[in-house]
């Protein structure tokens, strides 16, 4: 459910730029761009590599995907995701969100429209079913942000 406030909030700049970047391309080239995002997904920061307990499994993704949301001292959200090399699509989705949400406050993250994954022009190239993995990742990110805000 999107509250009226959230629906009215402008899309954060990075997410808007990523969306426009995809929409400017032909269908075929959108897959190439998604692959570029997949290759850009950073490894998990070293301080988390020995802490599998902190990671949450994204059950909706069709491969072992783990994520973790961090709120730093400046109250900025950091999304960390790990996904296997054999799952480039999932890595691409994770990378889009990690880059698109970078530098946002918890409130800004919560205001991102839930249907963002369906607005970036990948429905035909990737299929709606596969895009659900990205929606799930966004949903879990928001839930963890809420938990961390109230903690």
């Amino acid at each position: 459910m999107i509250s009226i406030d959230a629906a009215d909030a402008p899309l954060p700049t990075a997410l808007a730029e990523i969306r426009d970047e995809f929409l400017e391309l032909e269908q075929r080239d959108r897959l190439t761009l998604l692959l570029e995002f997949a290759n850009e997904l950073p490894d998990l920061p070293e301080r988390y590599q020995d802490h599998p307990d902190l990671l949450e499994r994204v059950l909706e993704c069709q491969s072992p995907v783990y994520m973790f949301v961090e709120l730093d001292d400046e109250d900025i959200v950091h999304l960390h995701v790990t996904a296997p090399r054999e799952s480039p699509t999932t890595r691409g989705f994770a990378s889009i969100l990690a880059q698109g949400l970078a530098g946002l406050t918890p409130e800004q993250v919560l205001a991102v429209p839930d249907d963002y994954p369906n607005t970036i022009g990948l429905t035909a190239a990737v299929s709606p079913l596969r895009l659900r993995g990205m929606s799930a990742l966004l949903g879990r990110t928001k839930r963890q942000v809420k938990e961390k805000m109230s903690a």
Partner: peptide, 9 residues
């Protein structure tokens, strides 16, 4: 494939 991008890798 299941993964739509795997071929491209």
């Amino acid at each position: 494939d299941e993964d739509v991008l795997l071929y491209e890798t």
